[in-house]
């Protein structure tokens, strides 16, 4: 009589040869998704609102921050990592944007909630003169409380 108990050999080691590939795929995913934001040189707390639309990220969008400078607490604008006074915005925009290219640009306004409308209106006046009429006021969603 033959041996009934045939040995079944089970391979116990998990193959790890494909591990680098998996990690590379993850890596590429995060490399694509990552958006580097410029460092904020100003302090701004966004106001809360409810009727919000999602901002479609686009490198063509122009981000304008308005708040108080972290260094000295003065009211300033930040544009591409540079600080400037509200009065200087028009000159800088004229330098940066070639005429006629600004029609479809969306301007994302990130404004501190304690700012007065005076400076907000000044910024809007400059944008209107430049033909940058599409704006989005960035806000926070209120935290749901029960």
């Amino acid at each position: 009589m033959k041996n009934l108990r045939t040995k079944i050999s089970v391979q116990q080691a998990i193959p790890t040869s494909s591990l680098p590939d998996i990690i590379f795929i993850l890596l590429f995913f995060f490399m694509v998704v990552t958006v580097m934001k410029p460092d904020l040189l100003i302090e701004r707390t966004l106001p809360e609102a409810k009727q919000l639309k999602k901002l479609q990220p686009d490198s063509k969008n122009l981000h304008v921050y308005l708040g108080r400078a972290i260094l000295n607490g003065q009211q300033v604008i930040q544009l591409d990592g540079k600080l400037l006074r509200v009065e200087d915005l028009e000159g800088v925009l004229n330098q940066r944007l070639a005429p006629g290219t600004s029609q479809n640009k969306l301007v994302v306004l990130e404004i501190d909630k304690d700012m007065s409308m005076k400076s907000v209106l000044q910024v809007q006046q400059v944008l209107r003169r430049r033909g940058l009429r599409k704006v989005m006021y960035l806000t926070k969603t209120p935290i749901q409380t029960l």
Binding site: L19, P20, L27, V135, T139
Partner: peptide, 30 residues
């Protein structure tokens, strides 16, 4: 694998998935 891991962790830490929301408005013409 180790090198890729390090890079991966770097991107993990720096990623902020964009969830920006706001109110859209068309400014009046001059």
């Amino acid at each position: 694998a180790d090198i890729a891991f390090l890079l991966l962790i770097f991107f993990f830490v720096t990623t902020t998935i964009q969830t920006d929301k706001g109110i859209i408005l068309l400014l009046p013409q001059i």
